[in-house]
Design a protein around this nucleic acid. Sequence first.
DNA 1: ATAGGGTTAG
Length: 496
Amino acid sequence: MSRLIQNRIGNTLLRLKPQPSILIKNLSTSPEPSLDDESSQSSHIWNVIIARAGGDSEDEVFHRLSNDPLCNRVTLSDTLLNKLLHRFRDDWRSALGVLKWAESRKAHKNHSPEAYDTAVDILGKAKKWDRMKDFVEKMKVDNTVTLNTVAKIMRRFAGAGEWEEAVNVFDRLNEFGLEKNTESMNLLLDTLCKEKRVERARSVLLELKAHIKPDAHTFNIFINGWCKTNRVEEALWTVQEMRGYGFRPCVISYTTIIKCYCLQCDFIKVYEMLSEMEANDSPPNSVTYTTIMSCLNSQKEFEESLRVAARMKRSGIEGDTLFNNCLIHTLARAGRVEEAERVFRDEMPSVNTSTYNSMIAMYCHHDEEEKAVELLREMESLKVCEPDVHTFHPLLRSCFKRGDVVEVGRLLKEMVTKHHLSLDESTYTFLIQRFCRADMCEWAYCLFEEMISQDIAPRHRTCLLLLDEVKKKSMHEAVERIEHVMRTVKLTAPVK
DNA sequence: ATAGGGTTAG
């Protein structure tokens, strides 16, 4: 959205009363650095760079950064550069400006190739094909194009439906000093298959196989390609073809097919395949069981899902983190809190954010918020993994349920200032809904403006809900603003 | 990027 609209929103916000200052002040603006804290110090510098790097052209960004004394004192490590590029992954002008500035800061402009690959990826994401091609030509001269670069180009082209361009890149591999071999061929085939152009991938293979030998990966790529388009017959046929080439289908081949049967809800075939794997000496692993359980969970078949987990344990396979996360989720949904706690405490050598999220959600669901908060504090002190927006969702939900909006504000502040999280589309949508329902549409409206100023498009339904509420309250300016947004912004449909 | 989570829901 244009900066013009953003300014107008800024003015609207200034006029809006009463101001729920906790939301306005804390949600969008960067957290204030606390004293004597090294990470806050660097987060301050980060915020300064970010502020300078927003701009309408890459030259503008470049000049603003170059002329800023503070920015020029920063030691610009590869890590920092990559973090900056990641921050501007949806803003190619700023990203290129930052990169240009970074180059000018180095005497012998040799940044890690990763930065250049990211730049290529950002241009591809923005579909700036000409700029991307120019960029790659420059890299070609410097001899810095790697297979990783090529992967980014191909995937961006294919992702935008320009899969002929993806094939062209493969044809030009030699120009980039790269080889046409099984690895690079597999990359092209996988790109096409992931974009559901499996037939096209087939004809590429037919054309190339006189010169390049397929390997086991090649066939797994096709099995996946067929399964993605729900053509399990062809996937099975590919297994046969694979055997014909002297490769044994592996656990990946079978798991891919099982996933396909799962999506078809054909559990007879799922269990048949499971037995076949055991018989064929490519036994199912943790991934296979997790796949099946997740699918059963989405059907709310929690007891059956637990039987699958038991089957895995019986066959002597150790669950990894993803499996145990799934198991905890299943136990929680099946109402078996103590068992979930036991898995969490005794059976997990390593945990991640999702593990905590499942446990926190479980406690909130069973109205044991003290325990949920206790786990949040544990995350903060152990620092094994950091909370994300999903960690807070169930906690926020509980506050709304209790009608404790003060606590909602406190949690939001914690998310933004302590954990540097920015609210995403679904969080905004959820909060706006709940504030409306709590008859606090002033707060909901502030979040709405907040969302727009972050360039996050609201859902059509969210606009309608809020519009209805502000009309009831006779908030005329808000009505006008929401109607304006509905006319000018491309609204998103609810995710099904 | 050769295979695998969830989610705040009246």
